[in-house]
């Protein structure tokens, strides 16, 4: 009981520190933009800045998807495999001429991956297997299925429609389609999470499931919805990635999964410390993209970006651990 007072009292004096910490990620974004621009003014070209947003899109979209499940207090370790599977299904259906329309293909692939969200939640929510273990196991099955469809090779079919490349490589004026898609998805998810009942419930369930039960919120249903939304969004990230490279590699999803998870966690230090949020995930994904792009653009060796990304993540999450007793939902232990 004594802790309650001890925790709330110092916050009055620490207001300024708190504000700085709250917007630390955004400051870091701006600082790095200025830094790389001073080293090489070419960095500030509109086309390069657009590239950065497009680069951030893959990690950002998957990160937002993953953060939905984290918000309800669970973990989905299968997001990478689900992205790969979605891209593989789409490529396979188009390549084998089962479907001609690219748009229809996307819809069907996303519906199938939504089913994967149902399966995830069937184990993780309904049966009560710890979700991160259940999703890890299911992701292995997915990996196997992907290798079966791709026959273990990088998938490419010459009869893929030209539209296949549009999402990842197309441009509308100077703006890459990928960047546009990123912004649109972020806006939609921000609206759902911060302005609608569903979003309120998703965040409330992760904070105190008992309280939700008491006021008549169906906790199970909300968690299942979060898993399905997560799978669909991450599946879409897979489609974006395949479109960008115009092929499907079996490492497509696993390559971005860790960065995506990291940006969701990093994002939880932004704006509302201790709580996952869409805005934070976007800013964090941009940070990763700025670092990656800047390091390459200014000619530094590649490994530096991993080191910088890792250092920022551990500092930011360490800050949360120090300031918030309850830690982050879904990564706290015990």
């Amino acid at each position: 009981m004594g802790n309650r007072q001890a925790r709330t009292l110092p916050s009055r004096t620490g207001n300024k520190v708190e504000t700085i910490a709250k917007y630390f990620l955004l400051f870091a974004d701006i600082l790095l933009l200025v830094f790389f621009g001073l080293i090489d003014p070419g960095f500030w070209q509109i086309s390069n800045l657009m590239d950065i947003v497009a680069t951030a899109a893959l990690v950002g979209v998957m990160g937002m998807g993953a953060s939905l499940v984290m918000m309800v207090g669970e973990m989905n370790f299968g997001v990478g495999a689900e992205a790969t599977l979605t891209a593989t299904l789409l490529g396979w259906m188009l390549g084998h001429g089962i479907i001609d329309s690219y748009a229809l293909g996307i819809v069907i692939a996303l519906l199938l991956i939504a089913l994967m969200g149902v399966i995830d939640s069937a184990f993780g929510v309904v049966l009560g297997v710890p979700a991160f273990i259940a999703t890890l196991a299911i992701s292995k099955i997915n990996d196997g299925f992907v290798n079966y469809l791709t026959e273990g090779k990088t998938m490419f079919y010459s009869n893929w429609p030209p539209a296949f490349k549009f999402l990842g490589q197309g441009k509308i004026g100077p703006v890459p389609v990928m960047a546009l898609v990123f912004v649109v998805i972020a806006l939609i998810l921000w609206f759902i999470m911060d302005k609608t009942r569903l979003g309120t419930y998703i965040q409330a369930v992760g904070n105190n499931a008992n309280c939700c039960k008491q006021v008549g919120i169906n906790v199970r249903k909300i968690k299942i919805i979060a898993f399905i939304m997560c799978s669909v969004i991450c599946g879409f990230a897979g489609i974006l990635s395949a479109s960008k490279t115009n092929n499907v590699m079996s490492t497509l999803g696993s390559g971005i999964m860790m960065d995506a998870m990291a940006s969701a966690m990093l994002g939880a230090t932004f704006l509302r410390p201790g709580r996952y949020n869409i805005q934070g995930t976007v800013v964090a994904a941009l940070l990763t993209a700025i670092i990656t792009n800047g390091i390459i653009f200014c000619g530094y060796p590649d490994y530096i970006k991993d080191v910088i990304n890792g250092v920022i993540l551990i500092i930011a999450v360490g800050y949360i651990a120090l300031t918030r007793k309850e830690g982050l939902p879904s990564v706290k232990m015990g």
Partner: peptide, 21 residues
Amino acid sequence: YQERNLIGYMTAAQNICLGSE
């Protein structure tokens, strides 16, 4: 109930309307 059932980050008003927004 005896133990507190509130969503900590929400305001009192939001907590009062929780479940019947």
